[in-house]
Amino acid sequence: MSKQPLFEIKNLKRYFPAKGGKTVKAVDDVTFDIFPGETFSLVGESGCGKTTCGRTILGVYPKTSGSILYEGEETAKMSKAQLRQFRRRNQMIFQDPYSCLDPRMTIGTIIQEGMNVHFKRTPAQRNEKVTELLFKVGLTADFASRFPHELSGGQRQRIGIARALAMEPDFIVCDEPIAALDVSIQAQVINLMIDLQQEMGLTYLFISHDLSMVRHISDRIGVMYLGSLVELSPTAPLYEKPLHPYTQALFSAIPDVHRGKKEQRIHLQGEIPSPINPPSGCKFSSRCPYAQDRCHEEAPALRELEKDHFVTCHLAAQL
């Protein structure tokens, strides 16, 4: 890819303090780029650091170290005015569309709230904008006077999207946006996200553990394990030929309705270690079926094994 990245994330770390003076290494030295107009997805098991990574990129959590370049500029060094613009242009939608909509506010007020701070508009123009946004997410103008509890899960998720779009963003972190929805409604929300992306040139950071949906919507994917990126690749090669032993196991666990060909499931031993006390050397070494002495001692670096396809594993080339 030759385009200038929208985000360049380099050696990003985000640690949280834990009981007894310990630290949770939620995001531990992660490096990747996000290009304008693409959907970049983060996948991995619960607790591996996906949410923390998304929030740190947006500045919701301060980073512990590393750098985040936005259009080539270090976000930490932005002026107040630049930061204001940054906050407007980079939005987030969440897993549980209910808990983040104020139950006492009408949908109209919820959608307007953030945008009124950034855009000078007359009340009539504001209402017009709300109608336009509702329309954009497939709802009608009369939703503006309703309350969140009167809406279905899919409709609430649309409100979450409308509220983000109200800021006229170019980048949206979508954190498990369909996890709480029924299959038929998941498809509606994903279709809407794809339409909006094509129409408005949006860039997405998509976080999900639904690996079939990730395959459908993503241009490139980062696979996380215990706070680290273990594999980074465009979508097709990743699903056709995952290179990292963890990705191979993760993908082999996808239950599949398309039962033409059944692949052998790879069984992982035990559960994910705690991010307070990750294994030394390669973080996956405690569960990796191929682990050797070297893996327990030396942490593998992210390397490009095939074009645009990166992996963090000593042995990936031989497997």
Partner: peptide, 12 residues
């Protein structure tokens, strides 16, 4: 409520 890998283990 579980991850795919844990789900696969449990279903097995």
């Amino acid at each position: 409520a579980l991850d795919v890998t844990i789900q696969a283990q449990l279903m097995d």
